[in-house]
Amino acid sequence: MSKDGSAHFFTTKLDAMINWGRKNSLWPLPFGTSCCGIEMMATFAADFDISRFGAEAMRFSPRQADLLIVAGIINLKMAPVLRTVYEQMSEPKWVISMGACASSGGIFNVYSVLQGIDTMIPVDVYVPGCPPSPEGVMHALLRLQEMVQKGETHSQRRLKAEGKEYALTAKA
């Protein structure tokens, strides 16, 4: 504290600080396969700008992204690819399952469709809709941000259990 009463530092918890940084710089990996991919593109475009929330840097490489937005149908042919991409991402990583097809197979309960990506990878936020409106996707992102701040996501819980909370490059 200086002589005139203004503060030059503030106290907080370390994990609150780190989680604040993480939540405001989510870098999405748009895993868009079908119709939800178009609504995801609309969310990233100028009308429903997602870069307001810090998620502008779309990185298509799993090594460089931390938020996997699965938008669209995941097939039994695509499922191993999804699993590989998820495993290649480094911790902490988050998954938004966008749309009915990714969350549960949607209207397609057929021989070739994976009935929900949560059978293969842990999901943090599910967005209902077929396709969800861009407002829905933004709501999901904001909800995910709340979860990241509080440390409630699967990835953060896993890291905490392993004792590697502040690890920035932990292996999956």
Binding site: L76, K77, A79, P80, V81, R83, T84, N109, V110, Y111, S112, L114
Partner: peptide, 10 residues
Amino acid sequence: LRGYQVFTDP
């Protein structure tokens, strides 16, 4: 219609 066949490796 629902004859699923699941694989694990790409």
